[in-house]
Design a binder for these strands. Structure first.
Length: 113
RNA sequence: AGAGUCGCCUGGAUCACCGCGUUAUGUUUACAUACCGAGGAAAGUCCGGACUCCGCAGAGCAAAGUGGUGGGUAACGCCCACCCGGGGAAACCCGCGGGAACAGUGCCACAGAAAAUAGACCGCUCAUUAGCAAUAAUGGGUAAGGGUGAAACGGUGGUGUAAGAGACCACCAGCAUUUAUGGCGACAUAGAUGGCUAGGCAAACCCCACUUGGAGCAAGACCAGAUUGAUAGCGCUUGAGAACUGCUCGUUCGAGCUAUCGGGUAGGUUGCUUGAUUCUGCGAGCAAUUGCAGAACUAGAUGGAUGGUGAUCCAAUCGAAAGAUGGACAGGAUCCGGCUUAUAGGGCGACUCUUCUU
């Protein structure tokens, strides 16, 4: 699970990350990453799980699994990073997909910088 | 043993490691330790309350809701018991169950002759005319028979008649009035009298009785911060506008209000969980429920905690086995009481009928 400091909670931060951040997509996930945000609290992660994914129980389950999967990957990111994961549809396991996305987004960020 | 009816409970378990949220303690501002951490429906948001705020809520009209009787409850549209009607062999189940002459209006598809102050399609029958006759035509009488329909204006038997008919009689059903008995009551049972007979729909308008102030935890309180413009209209005690309130009256507040354009905020703390609470025992009551005593504390998040991995057991499915697959419906958001809907599997109890044995 994510420690409290590594959670994205403000509506504004969500809007800024999804609008200005680097974006990579896979069949069931979308990853937004925004670097050099100015606050060095450590990488922050937020989740968007749409109602189209499933009922309340399913959405909570998906959110928990994703939070758990992203936690060991956080050290790969800069301190001033904000990440938003958007879920498009239901899947049994997101492990491989998420690792692939992180690899791709890091390459993208390297090119930009 | 079989078939069935009703009610209730349960809703995978244990361990290890790594994580998350509240609270407490310790160092101290980030960690450590300890405790606790979703449901029977947390759901739908359909009723009823608690709680909070509003200029403490007046009268009339309108509107909405409820509708057998008695009881329970903080309250209810809920629950219990009983009554009535319907279904079943029974346990038991179902019912939005006031009023249909004593107010009035309306509707009753299709079929059928006719759907409500009746009605003559077929049939039955009488008279007259025509005809040798069968029969036909015309004018009457007739609701016993036929067929239609969810429903056809009492039923059975007789007297009677040209044929028939509550026209008359007996019994039965049902209606109205009334008496007695039982019951708190809805009502039931028994009798008397009357006239021979009265369709359904009030989930159609309507009538009767009772109930209802409005908004809701994004309620409300505190802290911090931002915008604090432009144009037009109305008004400043000769009253704009606002609240009760949907309308009228009435009461109260009252110096700003309304429309368009432009701009800004929605951050934190609190409300926030000890309550019509839960469990146990002894009483009251057929029951719903309730009185007294003792014990217990059982989520409180706010981009929103309860998760991940592994092992064993349990249930299920597949399979000869080894083994493999893999866990119903579903996630708190101020809190309670109900209702409704979803729900794999497992368990317990009470009762009814049939068969067998004693």
């Amino acid at each position: 699970m994510l420690p409290a400091a590594n959670r994205l909670r403000n509506g504004k931060d969500f809007a800024r990350t999804t609008r200005n951040g680097a974006r990579v997509t896979s069949p069931s996930l979308v990853l937004y990453v925004l670097t050099r945000t100015g606050n060095s609290t450590g990488p922050q992660v937020g989740l968007i799980v749409n109602k189209s994914v499933g009922g309340s129980v399913v959405r909570h389950r998906v959110a928990r699994q994703l939070r758990h999967l992203i936690a060991p990957q956080l050290h790969k990111f800069d301190q001033e990073t904000q990440i938003v994961i958007r879920t498009l549809r239901m899947k049994d396991s997101y492990t491989a997909e998420l690792e692939d996305l992180i690899e791709r987004v890091q390459k993208k960020l390297l090119v930009v910088s």
